[in-house]
């Protein structure tokens, strides 16, 4: 049985002057599949994400989601086409409360952003949905604090909650557990595992921690110097020489 890919990158390339940060990466991503993207620092993982979610525009190549070419679209248009993205560095609305943060993400896709004279509190459906995500991420206790007042771990959870509240088809996590304490990280990983079990969703995850990669990944792709170096099942990729070379720095010696 073949499942059609939900997201396809074709020869995706971006150059900054002479530097090629992402070089002709072609990849298919399927619903129900969790792909972990690994590679050393500077390999182009985050840049690859930026090209998919639209913070950067490709120099060459295309991003296609369910047959729709997103390559020239703004980030907000891509969000409406079901691309959801969480950021590596916490990227929230610091002076707004946790609930307001999440409600914004829910509201973006309900079309209520343009309702002018309705009090936001009266949109109970919106708030109820936002509260579901608060519960899922165990942030109910801090719902009325400004995002800036949260601990780092809770801010990371809010980052994930924002992505979930967008209810996208494609979930992109950029090191979701970075800097998190050991007791917080499992919460986030459980959430990601849950999303993965919903077979209609596609998950892309940038992650360094090898235990996380082992437990969650259905597939691993390796980026190095902006190029796609390996792509396959976790066991296969992890045991290949190529990955060991990249992580242990042998490729530098060969080159």
């Amino acid at each position: 049985m073949t499942i059609h890919p939900s997201l396809v990158t074709k020869d995706l390339t971006i150059r900054f002057g002479g530097h090629v940060a992402v070089n002709a990466v072609s990849c298919d991503f399927r619903p129900g599949e969790l792909t972990v993207i690994v590679g050393p620092n500077g390999a182009g993982k985050t840049t690859f994400f930026n090209l998919i979610s639209g913070q950067l525009s490709a120099t060459q190549g295309a991003v296609v989601k369910d047959g729709v070419d997103l390559t020239r679209m703004s980030p907000s248009a891509r969000a409406h086409h079901g691309i959801g993205r969480a950021f590596q560095l916490t990227n929230l609305f610091p002076q707004l409360t946790v609930l307001e943060n999440i409600r914004l993400a829910v509201q973006a896709h309900s079309g209520d952003g343009w309702r002018l004279f309705k009090r936001v509190e009266s949109l109970t459906e919106l708030t109820a949905r936002a509260e579901r995500y608060l519960e899922a991420t165990k942030l109910t206790q801090v719902a009325h604090l400004p995002a800036a007042a949260l601990s780092h771990g809770d801010q990371r959870k809010l980052e994930v909650a924002l992505l979930m509240a967008m209810e996208p088809d494609i979930y992109m996590f950029d090191e979701p557990t970075a800097g998190m304490s050991l007791d917080h990280a499992p919460d986030v990983l459980d959430l990601i595992a849950e999303i993965k079990h919903d077979k209609t969703k596609t998950v892309l995850l940038v992650e360094h921690k090898m235990d996380v990669v082992r437990t969650l990944a259905d597939r691993i792709i390796v980026l190095h110097n902006g190029e796609l170096l390996a792509d396959g099942a976790p066991d296969e990729v992890m045991s290949s020489d190529i990955v060991r070379d990249v992580y242990l720095g042998k490729s530098a010696v060969v080159a």
């Binding site: 639209g54 907000s76 993205r85 990227n91 707004l96 509201q107 973006a108 343009w114 936001v120």
Partner: peptide, 26 residues
Amino acid sequence: RLVGSPLGTVLKAIRENEARAEAIGY
């Protein structure tokens, strides 16, 4: 009324973090 509406929150979100507001679909 306008600033208390959903639109008002979007405006504050743009002030706080323009890039993220764009990323979540505004």
